[in-house]
């Protein structure tokens, strides 16, 4: 895809149960505790598959035990000058908001920050 690709990294994405908003898993390596963050920049990035699977397992277990998020799964991201960016356009839209309403979703919140 983009030419600025350096590495194939992955993060765990999910929807928050209470309001459905897209969230990302942040957890230190080896930790059994994770936190769900609203911004992609806050996600823990796995740069190899073992770490990715560890994150996913943690996310799935958390989803089952705490029942706070829905359907966690891994997405590929790339590091760009502007920060992390999903490689698939579907996930890019998920991480930003509707392209036809740039005043809404994460893209709008990011501007406010």
């Amino acid at each position: 895809m983009g030419e600025e690709v350096e590495d194939m990294d992955q993060v765990v994405i999910a929807n928050r149960l209470s309001d459905g908003l897209v969230v990302f898993l942040a957890a230190a390596p080896g930790s059994l505790q994770g936190e769900w963050k609203l911004r992609l920049e806050q996600a823990s990035v796995a740069s190899d598959d073992a770490r990715a699977q560890e994150l996913l397992a943690l996310g799935v277990a958390a989803a089952r035990q705490e029942q706070k998020v829905i359907e966690p799964y891994l997405i590929e991201v790339e590091r760009t000058a502007e920060g992390l960016r999903p490689t698939l356009y579907r996930e890019r839209i998920r991480c930003q908001g509707p392209t036809v309403r740039t005043d809404l979703g994460k893209q709008a919140e990011a501007r406010e920050v």
Binding site: L17, D19, G20, L21, Q67
Partner: peptide, 25 residues
């Protein structure tokens, strides 16, 4: 919300009331 129903159990119930989970929310 209290965790008494899993998403698999709840999904058919919310769908019966027109509530979907979409890309952003």
């Amino acid at each position: 919300l209290a965790g008494e129903l899993t998403e698999d159990q709840f999904r058919p119930l919310r769908l019966m009331n027109g509530l979907y989970l979409q890309l952003h929310a």
